[in-house]
């Protein structure tokens, strides 16, 4: 099938099998920032935004992305710069393989996610084996505070 969508703000057209995953489509188009992890929607390293919703691109059928507005980690510096900055400054990463998914997930958080419990619950599907999550949670809280326009507490 011919997939028409927008990716990171630009028109995107690709001829893909309807049963392929959005992950395969994006990586096949050179957008390798989105990673392949567990392939069963559990680990979160393949998280992308489809029409503002965070999805596991490994499970998301390419066809369901027709006409959708898709954002990947490559677009986050444009769409959610405060989230990217927060992860860099809080060192919210080690090996970095989960980082694209963490950043996209935080970029999809609504303003209702304000405290640590909320962040942990929201991000519970984005696994990290390195950090113990502390600096990731710091980065998420920092990003939310920046988006609210608050001075980030130190």
């Amino acid at each position: 099938m011919k997939l028409h969508a927008r990716v990171n703000g630009s028109p995107f057209v690709a001829e893909v099998p309807a049963t392929s995953s959005l992950l395969e489509v994006l990586r096949g188009a050179g957008l390798t920032g989105t990673k392949e992890g567990c392939r069963i929607g559990v680990c979160g390293v393949c998280t992308v935004l489809v029409d503002d919703r965070p999805v596991s691109s490994c499970l998301y059928l390419a066809g369901c992305a027709s006409e959708a507005d898709i954002w990947t980690v490559e677009g986050m510096a444009e769409r959610a710069p405060s989230v990217v900055d927060a992860f860099v400054e809080c060192e919210g990463m080690q090996c970095g393989i989960c980082t694209p998914g963490q950043i996209v997930a935080v970029a999809s958080m609504g303003p209702d996610v304000r405290d640590e419990n909320g962040v942990r619950r929201y991000l519970s599907g984005n696994l990290c084996r390195c950090t113990g999550y502390g600096t990731i949670v710091d980065a998420a809280l920092d990003a939310q505070a920046r988006r609210r326009g608050e001075v980030a507490p130190t």
Partner: peptide
């Protein structure tokens, strides 16, 4: 300072083994 690898990792630019064509 910031980690040397932080910005690339946070923007998807880091090329891991599976990312190299």
């Amino acid at each position: 300072g910031p980690r040397v690898d932080a910005r690339d990792k946070a923007t998807g630019a880091t090329r891991y083994s599976a990312d190299v064509e």
